[in-house]
Nucleic acid binder design. Structure first.
Lengths: 146, 146
DNA sequence: CCCATAAACTTGAGTAGTCAAGGAATACGC
DNA sequence: GCGTATTCCTTGACTACTCAAGTTTATGGG
């Protein structure tokens, strides 16, 4: 097997392991999945804590339909709300609620702890994490297009 | 956001992009997903081209139930067959069929091409791929246990 | 102005996995 | 050996996506 294929397959395994850990921690402590948390984090980074669903899809690497479905439970539990656009009736914003804004920092703390554990010494040196991030950035498009 | 969390989230994005490319290529040319291909490849590496389903699950980072479901369509299209164990009636082997053995090399070639494209110069240098593989290996346990 | 096209979103159907429960067969302690 | 525990596997019910099709609203050319 080629080196490149080997690297790609290892990436798959690493991601699967990573998702399981994050889901376990975030789910146990805050009742959200890693996907939920990522969505909330993006929203929080957007001006006003709100985004058009289509832009959210692009930012998350999902389809529009995936965003519709991901948002539904978050709206149900009151972390996100749906807001119409005054100028364009087609668009619906997804917006962090007060509760969402309140809870996000605790989730972020949990996520950072989890990430720190994953990349803990002794296996991981100081420089390894940024190197890995750099390499991954070359791979991970910011969208769905091939 | 911490460096470690950033790296973890980039890993998620990179994997999503990667799966989409492999699925498109492998699906288009051979009618299998990346998950299917990975399963077939593991089988081919095992002595006799067969494995107990439970070991296959461990090797792939899936649950036993996931393996049952993944195997069903591969058995249906005749790439894998189910074989009983003479000594232990609980275990069922998954075994590459003749067709499976025939087709796998073509799939492997496609997968290697795809991986080579993903890691193509100029963005990727000679040493980058093994470095990435090394870093990923530290993350990706060989199983489901936390 | 009006029609055609395009954009934003939702919905139905399908795929890929999870977990929890359960059936059947083997292995172990005494 | 005999009952209990354990292993292997499958199944039902769920989550999280995908794609294709449809609805609604906006936009731009004649």
């Amino acid at each position: 097997m080629s080196d490149t294929l080997d690297a790609a397959l290892r990436l798959m395994r690493a991601q699967a392991a990573l998702v399981r850990r994050f889901d376990a921690r975030l789910g146990g402590l805050h009742g959200v999945s890693l996907a939920d948390f990522t969505l909330l984090l993006r929203l929080a980074q957007a001006p006003g804590g709100r985004m058009r669903r289509v832009d959210l899809a692009e930012a998350l690497g999902l389809t529009a339909s995936g965003v519709t479905r991901a948002l539904a439970p978050l709206e149900r539990i009151g972390l996100v709300s749906r807001e119409p656009d005054a100028r364009d009736a087609r668009v619906a914003y997804a917006s962090l609620t007060g509760t969402g804004r309140e809870r996000l920092p605790e989730m972020l703390a949990t996520a950072e702890e989890t990430a720190d554990e994953l990349f803990a010494a002794p296996a991981w040196g100081e420089r390894d994490v940024p190197v890995l991030a750099g390499l991954l950035t070359r791979l991970g498009g910011t969208g769905l297009r091939s």
